[in-house]
Structures are given as structure tokens and as C-alpha cells.
Simulated assay, not measured.
Amino acid sequence: MDTVRSLLLFVLAALAEIGGAWLVWQGVREHRGALWVGAGVIALGLYGFVATLQPEANFGRILAAYGGVFVAGSLGWAMVMDGFRPDRFDLIGAAVCLAGVAVIMYSPRV
């Protein structure tokens, strides 16, 4: 159950961080205004909170693993929200990152 909880928290963290960064981007780069930027800042703060809910106690391990989730999640977000079409190298890179997440977070520790 801890693994399922951990995976769900990674997904929630990705939505908050990637969504927050996207909102800031939209507010600044696409000139949508301060409300978009403010919503993005709030979402980014929520990301920081969600990361603390992981069952693993080691901050470095969680953030290292989350990096791989962020890579794959960013490509997925861009596909859905911006119509981005990843090429095979994007997909291979994301798969390698997710494999790294699995090794870092879910390998048996001795």
C-alpha cells in the first residue's frame, strides 16, 4: 500500500509543480496576467507540501526520484495542454527516467 500511496503522491506532486510552472509561464510569456502567475505560485507551494507526504523519510531520495516523474510528466502535460508531439527520443528519455524512479524509490534496501 505504501508503493501505491507513493505513486499517487508523485502524480499529485507532478500535477501541482508542472501545472504551477505552466500557469506562471502562461501568465508571463503568454501575457495572461497576474492571476495566472498567482495561481501558479500557489500550485508550486502545494507541490512542496505534497512532497512531504511521501512515506520515504529521505528528502534527497524523494527529490531525486521525483525528477524522473517530472521529466515524464512534463512531456505528458505538454501533449495534453499544448499539443506537443514528443519524438521517440523524448519517449525513450522519459522511460529511462521512470526506470530510474523505480530503482531509486522501490528497490529493496539492504
Rank of each mutant, 00 (worst) to 15 (best):
A78Q: 06
L9I: 11
W22A: 15
T52F: 08
V80D: 07
A16D: 01
V71Y: 06
L46T: 14
L12I: 12
L53T: 08
L46K: 04
E30V: 13
G60H: 03
F89G: 00
R109K: 15
A102D: 00
P55Q: 04
W25H: 12
P108W: 02
G33Q: 10
S74Q: 11
V69R: 04
F70D: 02
W77M: 05
F89S: 09
G73Q: 09
M81Q: 12
A72M: 09
W22Y: 14
A43S: 14
A64V: 00
P55R: 07
E56V: 15
P108S: 12
T3R: 14
L8T: 07
L44V: 14
S74D: 05
E30Y: 06
R5G: 05
A51Q: 13
R85T: 14
D90I: 02
L63Q: 06
G38I: 12
V96E: 02
W25N: 10
L63I: 15
G76C: 10
V11R: 03
A57M: 06
F70L: 09
M105Y: 04
Y106K: 03
M105R: 08
G48K: 10
M81D: 05
V11S: 11
G48C: 13
A57K: 10
F89D: 03
V110T: 13
T52Y: 03
V80I: 15
I18H: 00
V69Y: 02
A13R: 01
A78D: 02
L35T: 12
L98M: 15
D87R: 01
